[in-house]
């Protein structure tokens, strides 16, 4: 992690202008004063660490403990829980259903994250080419989609895809398709298609805005120089623009993977509208159905811990490559 000195250096750099940084030869390193023994950095970091520890550490510890207990509805209302060791985990890992749900979750997450990234980056690139009024219009639209409360927008999506009275069925039928009374949520694949549309629609604005902001930081001179050297559109994108915004792409991609892995509200609400819960559960809704829905908080906590481990495993390569990048480039 950063020390205060490196943070100060960054402040200086951003004031003097990052735009020239990539073409400039590596700056001579200043004498390393960071090693000087001082407790000040630790003191400064302490409040944040304490707050994080309380807000995140306590629930996490509680969660781990819960996963070793037989904890039902009666315990929720005050009866002492019983310790069962690894029984919750054993029961889970021998149940094929968990693995089915896990596989579904991973596939759903990767498909959604990829679709979101492609669309978001594409939009950001297009936005760069737009005239100002058009861009403002597009950005306002994106912002509205991003700011829309999940439940409110899902109500509308649900109506759009409604089996009997949905606009989508109406339009597709009007266009000559056989979609009268078509149940979009009936089959798991089609259910996930609708869920993907909703999730991607909601996440694209964040990616588009962030990447657009990063694109603004790419020096024009650099792109121009590449153009003069004879680089075509695709080459400029691949060899100049993408490497320049790579850190942003990495972070945004990482966040998308995490967010899409723990997607909950969209699936939960669509399950209420139709479709079979068993056939469409992802880890998020599975935890909910087990715990809050089914009153088995112990097993549910065990799945949550498993999901945490899965998140770490899935994102580790990302984080690792970022850390490596820092080491080699710093």
């Amino acid at each position: 992690m950063m020390t205060t000195t490196s943070a100060r250096e960054e402040a200086t750099v951003s004031v003097t202008g990052t735009r020239t940084a990539p073409v400039r030869p590596a700056r001579p390193r200043r004498p390393d004063r960071r090693r000087a023994a001082s407790s000040l950095p630790y003191l400064l970091v302490a409040p944040a660490v304490l707050a994080l520890g309380l807000a995140l550490g306590y629930p996490l510890v509680r969660q781990v403990l819960l996963s070793f207990q037989e904890f039902g509805l009666a315990q929720q209302f005050g009866q002492p829980p019983e310790w069962v060791g690894l029984a919750n985990y054993e029961q889970l890992f021998t149940d094929a259903y968990l693995w089915r749900v896990t596989l579904r979750t991973i596939v759903f997450c990767l498909v959604n994250a990829a679709a979101t990234m492609v669309l978001g980056v594409g939009l950001a690139l297009v936005m760069r080419a737009m005239s100002t009024p058009v861009r403002l219009l597009a950005q306002t639209g994106l912002l509205l989609a991003w700011a829309m409360p999940v439940v409110a927008s899902l109500t509308v999506w649900q109506w759009l895809f409604d089996t009997q009275y949905g606009v989508i069925n109406y339009l597709l039928t009007a266009l000559g398709g056989d979609f009268e009374g078509h149940g979009w949520l009936l089959r798991p694949l089609s259910f996930y298609f609708v869920a993907t549309v909703v999730v991607v629609w909601m996440s694209v604005p964040f990616v588009a805005f962030t990447v657009y902001a990063a694109l603004m930081q790419v020096p024009d001179e650099l792109v121009e120089a590449a153009e003069i050297d004879g680089a075509g559109r695709a080459q400029r994108l691949r060899h100049v623009i993408v490497p320049s915004i790579r850190p942003v792409l990495m972070v945004v991609g990482l966040l998308q993977v995490i967010w899409d892995l723990r997607v909950f509200a969209q699936i939960y609400i669509l399950q209420k509208a139709g479709g079979s819960a068993t056939d469409t559960n992802l880890l998020g809704t599975y935890i909910y159905r087990l715990g809050i829905g089914g009153g088995d908080f112990g097993t549910s906590a065990a799945v949550a811990i498993f999901m945490l481990a899965l998140t770490v495993v899935l994102t580790a390569p990302y984080v690792w490559s970022m850390i490596r990048q820092e080491r080699t480039e710093a």
Binding site: E10, S14, T18, A21, P22, M322
Partner: peptide, 9 residues
Amino acid sequence: MVRIKKSLT
């Protein structure tokens, strides 16, 4: 860019 990457990390 180096610094930006670092802080982003």
